[in-house]
Design a protein around this nucleic acid. Structure first.
Lengths: 335, 335
DNA sequence: TGTTAGCACTTGGGCATGTTGAGTGCTAAG
DNA sequence: CTTAGCACTCAACATGCCCAAGTGCTAACA
């Protein structure tokens, strides 16, 4: 038995199955692909593939479908990246236009990616650990309520309403604002916990209580901006692509709603800087995603973009789309 | 035939059907509810109800199920609000605790409401048309990039990165900041379009170009904050509640993803200040929601909260939950 | 006039049975 | 190592049958 042909057979099975959504048999295989051998030979090859756990038969007399392991081998060794169509290139390119606002860009990115792949697209907000404090603002909303705003040089803005406990004088607030601003402007967000206490200590004693509260607010804002968030689009694709072949959609929706789960998932995936990473079926750390695959890659300074879909998906095309989108995203947001 | 009994029969049908998910027949009806008459009588009543379009039979020899019109009559005239359980009250009450931040509160609200009702919960951000400018901030991110921040007295913060075209001096920016701040602090957001031009006109000629750009940014921010957004949770409930009985979930997910559709839907619903409004099945203006119902009500100063679920839902309980949550929400966010 | 019992009729769902066709594994020959 | 041939398996489909649930109608009744 020839090793190359065995792989060729696996490829054919994967491709046919992805396309037809039905178990594929030896006969159909020789007809649709010009492998130069008979169906009997294919059958032998398939028996070997099955022994190796790369394909499986749903029941005795049906064709074979790829296993998770089979898909894994497929994406690792067999598949070649498909070039994007002109229309797709154009669509991605148009991402370059429009406002620079991070939220806007990410929003459009997920929409685009979900349309491109017909899957659920997910994007993680850019990491801001290297972000630096640019501006601090305290705004008195009500006698005892202060709005704390923290602006980073990345353009990300965090806001939070805090309860001061007692009435706050606007002058005091302005004083504290310039104190804080003077001391922490230019400081990395993740260094704030170390810097803030000393700022508080230097405040006039009568303002120290308020300063403490405000410092607390600022810190939780910086935590918050480091706390990663995700954006997604295309959940309807889950329902569409599974009319015939039910990947049970409930658990998947649950996973998608739990940002924590998705974040964990994305960050657990290796970060091969050259290409996209794929996590297939039961490889996923979350049970609800046992029938789903995630195709993701990093962009910019380490955040992830990707898609989630049924294990039975068109990996080459999907991978190409994810990679292309990530590249453009890096370019726009600046590496 | 007695009119009250007819309604009683309809109520029984709705309740049984919601509970069992199966067409309900005359015999089962007399067994489960102590209507004082025989099944034959019920059959007569049912024939009338069917003639009036309130119930329908899926096929000749099956029980009846309520039509959209039947549900409508049910919620309008028959159903009585169910009191919430103690646990539910407690859950809602705990909403009162925790930070005052609008985003946080709304986030927790949708989660709670989706758990309470086992449906998809939706909440509209509070209207801010009456909001007033509290603060304006311009931050130089890069030589030609300015971050414009607009803070309203409601605590809502809008941000936007704008491209200045040419290099910007920080001093100029600070000057403009105090000009703008002085002129528009206290102005209602929706009056900005009228006020901003005069501010620009009063600027020193050499800064007028920049001022114009900034004014433009501010205005689009105010538009943006008036532009309404929604938050939702519990989409997984769609899948769960429909394992047996398929409301085709795809179109519904699509609708949910299109904020425009949902906003339209919510605002099209009347705003009965005393109670919740229900839109049933084909009453919905969006085709994808032909098998879905929306239960919503206003809170605070006119924004909506509600849930979306299959037409076959437990209206009394759901309505009670929505109403209760809306009340608490109003209380927290202030009327 | 409204209610009831009785009954003939309809029909979807469950079940047992039969048939088909795709697909397999094995064997023996090339 | 490949191939043709063949017996075998089994899901999917079809057919026929029966049953239970449910209806509509009619005639009797209060």
């Amino acid at each position: 038995m020839s090793e190359p042909r065995k792989l060729e057979v696996l490829r054919a099975i994967v491709e046919d199955y992805v396309h037809s959504r039905e178990p594929v048999g030896s006969k159909a295989l020789v007809e649709r692909h010009h492998l130069g051998v008979s169906s009997a030979t294919i059958r032998n090859d398939m028996a070997v593939l099955e022994e190796e756990g790369l394909i499986a038969a749903p029941h005795t007399s049906a064709g074979r479908i790829p296993t998770d392991k089979g898909y894994r081998l497929f994406v690792d060794r067999i598949s070649q990246v498909k070039p994007l169509s002109a229309a797709e290139r154009r669509a991605i390119h148009s991402l370059l236009e429009g406002p620079d606002d991070v939220d806007d860009i990410l929003e459009r990115t997920v929409r685009l990616l979900s349309q491109l792949t017909n899957q659920v697209a997910v994007v993680q907000y850019p990491h801001s650990s290297r972000a630096v404090v640019r501006h601090v603002e305290f705004v008195l909303l009500a006698p005892k309520q202060v709005l704390v705003v923290l602006i980073a040089d990345t353009g990300s803005v965090g806001q939070k309403v805090i309860d001061a406990g007692s009435d706050v004088a606007n002058e005091a607030l302005m004083l504290l604002r310039s104190r804080f601003l003077g001391s922490i402007a230019g400081t990395q967000l993740d260094l704030l916990p170390q810097v803030l206490p000393s700022v508080v200590a230097l405040c006039p004693p009568e303002l120290r209580g308020l300063a403490q509260t405000l410092a607390h607010g600022l810190q939780s804002l910086s935590d918050n901006s480091r706390e990663e968030r995700i954006l997604m689009a295309g959940t309807a694709n889950l329902a569409r692509s599974n009319v015939d072949f039910p990947l049970s959609i409930g658990p998947v929706l649950e996973a998608l709603e739990e940002q924590v789960v998705m974040l964990r998932l994305l960050s657990d995936m290796g970060d091969d800087p050259r290409g996209v990473t794929v996590s297939i079926g039961r490889e996923n750390p979350y049970d609800g995603l046992a029938e789903a695959s995630v195709v993701a890659t990093g962009y910019g300074s380490g955040a992830k973009v990707g898609i989630l879909g049924p294990t039975r998906m068109d990996y080459p095309t999907t991978m190409a789309a994810v990679r292309a989108v990530a590249r453009y995203l890096s370019r726009i947001l600046g590496g």
